[in-house]
Design a protein around this nucleic acid. Sequence first.
DNA 1: TGGAAAACATGACGGTCAGCATGTAAGTTC
DNA 2: GAACTTACATGCTGACCGTCATGTTTTCCA
Lengths: 205, 205
Amino acid sequence: MTSTAHRTQAQRREQTRTALLDATIDCLVDVGYARTSVQEICARAGVSKGAVQHHFTAKAELMAAAVEHLTTKLRRQLAASLDELPSGGTGVAAAIDLLWTGYSGTLSTAVTELWVAARTDPELRAAIRPVDRALGRATLEHVTQVAGELPPERAEMLFWLTVNLTRGLALDAELGGDPHRRRQLLEEWKRIAVLLYQDATTGPS
Amino acid sequence: MTSTAHRTQAQRREQTRTALLDATIDCLVDVGYARTSVQEICARAGVSKGAVQHHFTAKAELMAAAVEHLTTKLRRQLAASLDELPSGGTGVAAAIDLLWTGYSGTLSTAVTELWVAARTDPELRAAIRPVDRALGRATLEHVTQVAGELPPERAEMLFWLTVNLTRGLALDAELGGDPHRRRQLLEEWKRIAVLLYQDATTGPS
DNA sequence: TGGAAAACATGACGGTCAGCATGTAAGTTC
DNA sequence: GAACTTACATGCTGACCGTCATGTTTTCCA
């Protein structure tokens, strides 16, 4: 951790800025969007309300910045779990596992909070949509890179099915659904996906 | 609509109570959980804050009651769309459509709001869990009744996969994702499910 | 080395929130 | 029809919210 002695202005700025954004994410995960107040955020970040005022003109702007911060973090995490995979395309099942770990972590929990909040907040929604779409495309690329050679149309279908299923499962997990059943469902889906993969490569219907 | 003249006490009570609960649901759908205040609710219900105070000791209790109100409404809606189906088991695809319409309406939007809020609110969570589990079981029964004769284990698997996929799709819909793609994904999933159904009946792996 | 500028802290303001005390009207009971 | 209970309305209170005006510290530059 960088010391507090003799930091350049850019360093100071960047440091408290990321501290604020990280604190915002923590807040979303811990207390939810409804109770994510500026006071709570800067309490966790260890700065004053004046600081957040200096960096972001309004709370909405902070949230918009948090969205970007979140997606870059998610992308980084995705890349990291990609590196951990055994080399070479390890198939559809591995790709699905990848997506599940990506969509079931704390970062995605924060994303879900923002998503649901954005439904009734046009400003936040406008901030989220492009970033999320970009993340989706990037993830699709990374995943197809792992999944092996599928017909691109079929791969995209499988990807979006998996993403939406995973999001649903993540929601279930958030509310303390049965983890065993989730595991079972995911395994079943992997079986199905592999089966479909064979269909698509050996003989398209 | 019942007139306001000469209502019995029980009628008065029930009337404003449901008015409050309906207003709560409207509020959740329109402005989201974060901005669902007691004032806003009783403004929509056309009653005063004293009324909600009289019926529910605290806001949390109102929300808990709203959860029950919601699930009973959902159950009613499910039964209604069941009646609209052509008689006899119309297969897996019809069952999936049924689930999709159930999970993509405004009622489910409200449920999602409460769900996400409940993640960080133990009290609300405790109120939701049992009711939601009961709804899940009831829905499973109704759906299997439509889906035709599947091995019960297989049917339950398909059911939960569909539910979670549908919830993910509903989330996507809430944020203004591409409706065409959602339709496409749902059709694809129906194709897959029917395929699996054949597998399960003709020859289990 | 001293002044300008950026980064941050402090305190206050208007507004809204949930909860409560108290008052009023409608229905019930005798 | 009068006492009584229930259903609801009104108005207040303390707390918290986001925002802003103003002061203080830190870095930068000449």
